[in-house]
């Protein structure tokens, strides 16, 4: 493989129903950072149907160039058509790096592309840097977050990585940024389209994505029951926050899985994180330790959560939380 023929940092710009996903902007932000170090360009790949007009916004968020693959076959995400489209881009343009979001789409698409191209893929990265030889250093948690490993792919291109949502920072939108938009036609092998989408169902949820929340009130095993979890919800309402949970509450069926923080759930980075009755298993810490300010309430004064907390309260959250809600209510009415 002629490594030097491969250049620039490419980002798969994930969209759903024509809406560019936050992860795409986060990846562009990181790609800008990496491109600065290597003096390369940031290229976004935008695949979908009737999505061309979205290309401009990718430039505003950091892309130097956008390659648009607009085709009815790409109307909804399906593994095979998207794999064919992205593989075509890789073969034609030869990227040095390809970043994909570690979403249910990216984690379906990434390994399929890597096997088709015959290159490496590092999953769920939380840190990306450029090494001394210009190689991409991809750092990710392993063993349930107990260990971090930095992975390289020196002899293969593109260097592919999926990146956890909520970890990288997007840059501020700048509509005066200049960039190039290029349309690419792909000839699909439709004989390989074997999976058909019947229906895309959005679960009813009035609550927003916990990864986007500025304040999270999170409950764990110590909260113990749905009734107590309601008290957390009341505090959340008072603070304009969202509720989330550790795995224990999800396994107990009190909280849906899309509210789970941690290694097998979501990575969150709110300005304020309340951990109530959460002991702080390493899998949970991996998902929230980057939060701005962490308040932990736990009966066990040796609970590991206190090692990452900015403010630790040894006590029963089920008593303290309702009192806190009440006091805040009084303060706000004053």
């Amino acid at each position: 493989m002629e490594i030097s023929a491969y250049k620039d940092i490419y980002v798969f710009a994930e969209q759903r129903g024509g809406i560019i996903q936050g992860i795409a902007l986060e990846l562009l932000g990181k790609a800008r950072d990496l491109a600065q170090t290597t003096g390369q360009q940031v290229v976004a790949i935008l695949a979908g149907h009737h999505i061309s007009e979205k290309a401009r916004s990718l430039i505003a968020f950091g892309a130097d160039k956008v390659i648009v693959v607009d085709d009815p076959a790409l109307n909804e995400y399906l593994t095979e058509p998207y794999t064919q489209a992205i593989t075509h881009v890789i073969q034609q343009y030869k990227p040095a790096v390809l970043l994909i979001g570690a979403t249910t789409i990216g984690r379906d698409l990434g390994p399929r592309i890597s096997a088709r191209i015959g290159t490496g893929l590092t999953a769920d990265c939380t840190r990306l840097e450029i090494g001394e030889e210009g190689e991409l250093l991809m750092t990710r948690p392993a063993f349930g977050g107990n260990l971090m490993a930095t992975i390289v792919s020196k002899q293969h291109r593109p260097q592919m990585s999926t990146v956890r949502p909520g970890v990288m920072q997007k840059i501020d939108r700048d509509d005066s940024r200049k960039g190039e938009i290029e349309k690419l036609d792909v000839e699909f092998d439709k004989s390989k389209f074997k999976v058909r989408l019947i229906e895309n169902v959005k679960a009813k949820q009035s609550l927003k994505d916990i990864a986007e929340a500025k304040i999270l009130v999170s409950g764990g095993r110590g909260v113990n029951c749905a009734e107590n979890f309601e008290k957390l919800k009341e505090l959340a309402v008072m603070l304009g926050a969202e509720v989330s949970a550790s795995r224990a509450m999800v396994d107990a069926g009190v909280v849906p899985q899309n509210r789970q923080v941690g290694q097998t759930g979501k990575t969150v980075r709110p300005d304020l994180y309340f951990a109530c009755g959460i002991s702080g298993a390493i899998q949970h810490l991996a998902g929230m330790e980057e939060s701005g300010y962490i308040v932990a309430i736990n009966k066990d004064k040796y609970a590991p959560i206190f090692q990452v907390a900015d403010l630790g309260i040894v006590g029963d959250g089920n008593t303290i939380i309702p009192m806190l809600t009440e006091r805040l209510r009084k303060e706000m009415n004053r």
Binding site: D310, G312, I313
Partner: peptide, 21 residues
């Protein structure tokens, strides 16, 4: 195609203040 460049455990963040009141 991929190699482990290095493996390490995360440094523990310095704990903040703690109250038992």
């Amino acid at each position: 195609p991929t190699r482990v460049h290095k493996a390490f455990s995360k440094g523990v963040k310095a704990a903040g203040e703690q109250f038992e009141v």
